[in-house]
């Protein structure tokens, strides 16, 4: 069991490392570059085009070329163009030296889908990681505040959390995203500020239960102040489950960002994000499925990586499987729910 979890979490980590590395590597082509869109647009994956460099600087593409006398004939789709051989800079012995290879196809502007998916990875990972940082900080702060606050303040805080949690998160996010002007940094803050509630509940429950443990009681008995006990003993020990649920939350946040950008309320074009690439691909799905397909695949892979990692981490870090009593469980003695299962069920 533990071995299997270790393998899964290692697989997740490896996948994540792969995604991260791919995101940081230079892209094969400039993701914004539109080379000869008439010829290059909506090319299926694996297309290889001839890239002609005339002296005037406007790069031309063609399916194939042939030298006919002193002109180079460019065949593209069902058209033919002619360029005088003398004007072409990358022609040698009747052969054009450069090619353009669309491994994952091209979009409606003739941009390379692979390059755009890779650049999209940077945006998605950045948003997911920064937003989870905000959510974990807020969650820990509010959760521990509730745990050490007087009962009435605890109740007010937790009822507020309940109220926030009864909003379908996406309803709240979409309302807000539409009310403010969307930008990348706004999306980060928005996602972080609307997803800390689960972590705050978890942190509060954890800190409260740690409060009954001997080492905390002992610190209290020797006269340490509550805040000191919280910072030195309770918070560090509550971090493990928080880290695990944060890892699972990154996956959720990346999904939420993608949905938001897909709706046109998140990352705005021309900045490529996986969500807005899918929107762009949506209009040409019958003719060019690859434009919408590959960004979705990239999202799925990244989210799988975080889920594997979080799942594995939970089993590895805590073999006893931490469980918390779910909301209202004080009335239902038997109902013990797994905190991370709940966190996952709450995803948008």
């Amino acid at each position: 069991m533990a071995d299997r979890s270790r393998i899964l979490s290692m697989a997740g980590g490896a996948l994540l490392l792969l995604v991260g590395t791919l995101a940081l590597l230079p892209t094969p082509y400039d993701p914004a570059e539109q080379v000869d869109p008439r010829v290059g647009r909506y090319r299926p994956p694996g297309t290889r085009l001839v890239e002609i460099h005339p002296a005037d600087g406007f790069v031309r593409l063609a399916d194939s070329v042939e030298v006919r006398g002193d002109v180079l004939v460019l065949h593209w789709r069902h058209n033919e163009d002619e360029i005088p051989v003398a004007q072409i800079t990358n022609l040698e012995d009747g052969r054009v030296l450069d090619h353009r290879f669309y491994l994952l196809g091209s979009d409606k502007f003739g941009r390379d889908v692979l390059s755009r998916v890779l650049v999209g990875a940077r945006i998605s990972l950045l948003i997911g990681l920064l937003a989870v940082l905000i959510a974990a900080t807020l969650g820990l702060a509010i959760g521990s505040a509730a745990a050490i606050a007087p009962p009435w303040a605890d109740m007010v805080l937790m009822r507020g959390v309940d109220a926030l949690m009864s909003f379908p998160q996406l309803f709240l996010i979409i309302a807000l995203a539409a009310l403010f002007r969307p930008s990348t940094s706004f999306v980060i803050v928005l996602l972080g500020c609307t997803s800390w509630m689960g972590i705050s509940r978890l942190a509060r429950a954890e800190i409260l239960s740690l409060g009954q443990r001997e080492f905390v009681l002992a610190s209290r008995a020797v006269g340490q102040r509550p805040l000191g006990i919280l910072l030195r003993h309770q918070l560090p020990n509550a971090l493990t489950p928080v880290v695990v649920s944060a890892a699972l939350l990154v996956g959720n946040l990346i999904l939420a960002e993608a949905a938001l950008s897909f709706f046109g309320l998140g990352v705005q074009p021309p900045t490529p994000s996986w969500g807005n690439m899918i929107t762009e691909g949506r209009e040409a799905m019958t003719d060019a499925w690859w434009v919408a397909f590959f960004p979705g695949l990239a999202i799925a892979l990244t989210v799988i990586a975080f889920n594997l990692l979080g799942d594995g981490l939970r089993d590895v870090l805590d073999p006893r499987k931490r469980t918390v009593r779910a909301a209202g469980a004080d009335e239902t003695p038997a109902a013990v729910l797994d905190a991370d299962d709940l966190a996952r069920l709450r995803r948008p």
């Binding site: 949690m165 009864s166 909003f167 379908p168 998160q169 996406l170 309803f171 779910a326 909301a327 209202g328 469980a329 239902t332 038997a334 109902a335 013990v336 729910l337 709940l342 069920l345 709450r346 995803r347 948008p348």
Partner: peptide
């Protein structure tokens, strides 16, 4: 029993 409890708690995600 826990499933019935879960149903109530998963409603926000259903609406999302």
């Amino acid at each position: 029993v826990p499933l019935a409890q879960l149903l109530g708690m998963s409603l926000p995600s259903l609406l999302n």
